[in-house]
C-alpha cells in the first residue's frame, strides 16, 4: 500500500511554494508535492501532455487563484469540464478573502475554498487539516 500522498500545487510565488513544502515536510503522512507555476502548466500536467507525459495523477490539487496567464478559476472550470479530471478534489488556496472570488470558486464546483492563513503554525494546521480530510476521510472515485 502506497502511503505517500500525491499533491499538485499550482502556485506562482516561490516563497509560498517553499513555505508549503516546509510545512508539509513535517507532516505525519508522507506527501509527494508536484509544483507547477501557471494554469497552462497545471492543465498540461493533469492531461499528461508534453513534458508531463509520465506525470503521476495527483490525489489533491491545491490551486491558487492569482496566476499568470490562465487564472485559478479558469483552470478549475477546465478541470470540471473534463470527466477524467472532474473527480479530483480541488482546494482553492488563495490569499484573497473577497466574497466574489469565493462564490465564483464554489459555483465552478471547487471542493472547498481556503484562505491562506498568516503564520507558520496556522499554515501547518490548515494544510494538515486539508490533507487529512480529503485523503484520509473523504471518499473519492477510483482513478
Amino acid at each position: 500500500m502506497n502511503t505517500a500522498t500525491d499533491i499538485l500545487l499550482v502556485e506562482d510565488n516561490p516563497a509560498d511554494v517553499r513555505m508549503v513544502l516546509e510545512v508539509l515536510r513535517s507532516a505525519p503522512r508522507v506527501c509527494r508535492v508536484q509544483v507547477v507555476v501557471d494554469g497552462s502548466q497545471a492543465l498540461a500536467f493533469l492531461r499528461r501532455q508534453g513534458a508531463y507525459e509520465h506525470a503521476t495523477r495527483p490525489q489533491l490539487v491545491l490551486l491558487d487563484l492569482n496566476l499568470p496567464g490562465l487564472n485559478g478559476h479558469e483552470v478549475l472550470a477546465e478541470m470540471k469540464a473534463e470527466p477524467h479530471l472532474a473527480g479530483i478534489p480541488v482546494v482553492i488556496f488563495s490569499g484573497s478573502r473577497d466574497g466574489q472570488d469565493i462564490m465564483k470558486a464554489y459555483q465552478l464546483r471547487a471542493s472547498c475554498y481556503v484562505s491562506k492563513p498568516d503564520g507558520v503554525e496556522a499554515l501547518r494546521e490548515t494544510l494538515q487539516g486539508i490533507e487529512g480530510f480529503w485523503i484520509g476521510t473523504a471518499s473519492l472515485p477510483l482513478s
Partner: peptide, 24 residues
C-alpha cells in the same frame, strides 16, 4: 480594493510567515 485585499496581503503574509519561520 481588490488589489488591496489580495495582492498587498500576499507579500505581507510572506514577511510575517518567513519571520516566524526564521525565529522558530
Amino acid at each position: 480594493a481588490y488589489v488591496a485585499s489580495h495582492d498587498l496581503r500576499e507579500p505581507l503574509r510572506m514577511v510575517t510567515s518567513y519571520l516566524e519561520l526564521l525565529e522558530k
